[in-house]
Nucleic acid binder design. Structure first.
Lengths: 259, 259
DNA sequence: TTATGTGAATCCCTTCACAGCC
DNA sequence: GGCTGTGAAGGGATTCACATAA
């Protein structure tokens, strides 16, 4: 792929926007539920509600996949399930390894959502020799020494890292060297990987921090002055001997927006 | 432009873009690491590298908070740590409850990242009477019956849902009724909540599915025809008696990139 | 000279609104 | 009539590039 600009703006082969890809699993889950209730067809409106998005967005998303609906009727549930599964690559088997079998790793190993959608846990790997052989979620934990062999024997291309932060980069390097090209990282670290390797990050505490931000704002609507008061308690910047030169986004005046 | 639903421009009280808010925890983590190494100042370039973003983006992000840097020098680490913490609301104490103490709930309860950043686990709650009283991460698990009392006694405004999908909405309703206004949802369901309640969703299997999509594309570069072959095996759409009217994004012609 | 802070340009995503087909 | 599929408009976010300040 040529990094270059698209000489064909329309009709790009597989030009599915990243934002759309991220929503396909949502649609798939909603569709699977409908399928289990033997619902034959669904409208964009209904499906969008079930997936928690709006219908225009959903139709636009599906338009990148092709014209899989019927005007005046809606979408055939089974057919869409198949098409989205195929698009996501879930019609094939993906062996994954989970490295780091602490609380989180064990939770992941037991998580039903993995196995149910084309993912197969090929092995659980931990650095602690005491863990070796112990069964977790029905699988015996393997020692890190076997990592490379497991990956090549099973053709693993997706690895899940659930180790402490300190071990994550090292594990990542070994996974990549052994042939893994996609990594789901639960460790609170930025991983550096060579070009061509995908990393997705799930960070539990970051999500909470984002919630706290919004929560604070809700509370702050009543007492908008509070944060200004807090700011006065800030440690002075060490650099450039100290006149109070810090300025908030709205200066020091009360931050009231003209609606 | 009539039909305007949003009476509020939404998400603009302090004017910090949502995308920026989502990155502040990343910066904060990188800064904390620098702080622990007693690094006094850092440039946007260095900090951006540590956080895994590019420096222009970082500077733009910080510009929404205020002018906290020094031209020609960089940012004072301690000062920035404080400012970002304050902006995120981490200078105050946030009691949280975790509902659903299975593998994942236990993992969350043990997760150090929570306690370390202004979050305090006020209680662990589970519906299983057999769990009640059992210690997890040093806290005795409480029964769901006590949910409302725990929330009001502790002034909990943030709840974490780690129950099975089937129980999630019900738990959510009770949390909200009891006064919780921010929810971090690990259950694979779309929660419906009243206006004013924030929900963030973490879905482990969705992340894997997104990885699988990209992984498939990597593999497909060698054998681009394969997916066309698979498409022929698709179940025919049930709707509208059967002529082969399905069309992929490029019709039926082989989807080969000019590349 | 160095590195921040920020208008301006660009890119991407979302939403609108309606043409097209059932 | 109903609902999909999609150009076009609109809004955000990212990136560029340079004026600005230490």
């Amino acid at each position: 792929m040529a990094t270059g600009r698209t000489h064909r703006p329309a009709t790009r082969s597989r030009g599915i926007p990243e934002a759309t890809v991220a929503r396909l699993p949502l649609y798939l889950r909603a569709l699977t539920a409908l399928s289990e209730r033997s619902v034959p067809t669904v409208s964009s409106e209904e499906l969008a509600a079930a997936a928690g998005v709006n219908s225009a967005k959903l139709r636009k998303d599906f338009s990148y996949l092709g014209s899989y609906g019927t005007r005046g009727v809606g979408y055939d549930v089974e057919y869409l399930v198949y098409q989205i599964s195929r698009e996501l690559g879930l019609t094939q088997d993906w062996p994954v390894v989970i490295v780091g079998i602490g609380n989180l790793g064990a939770a992941l190993a037991n998580y039903g959502g993995f196995a149910s959608r084309g993912f197969r846990v090929a092995a659980l790997i931990d650095a602690d020799p005491a863990m070796a052989g112990k069964p977790v979620a029905g699988l015996p934990v393997k020692h890190t020494d076997e990592l490379e062999a497991i990956i090549s024997d099973n053709g693993v291309s997706i690895g899940v890292i659930a180790t402490p932060a300190g071990a994550a980069q090292q594990v990542c390097d070994r996974l990549v060297a052994a042939g893994v090209t996609s990594i789901l990282n639960f460790a609170p670290t930025v991983l550096s990987v060579p070009e061509g390797v995908d990393v997705r990050k799930v960070d539990l505490s970051i999500e909470l921090q984002i919630l706290a931000f919004h929560e604070q704002r809700k509370a702050g609507e009543d007492a908008a002055q509070e944060s200004a008061a807090q700011e006065s308690a800030a440690p002075a910047p060490a650099v450039s001997g100290g006149a109070d030169r810090r300025k908030g986004p709205d200066g020091d005046v009360p931050a009231v927006m003209p609606a």
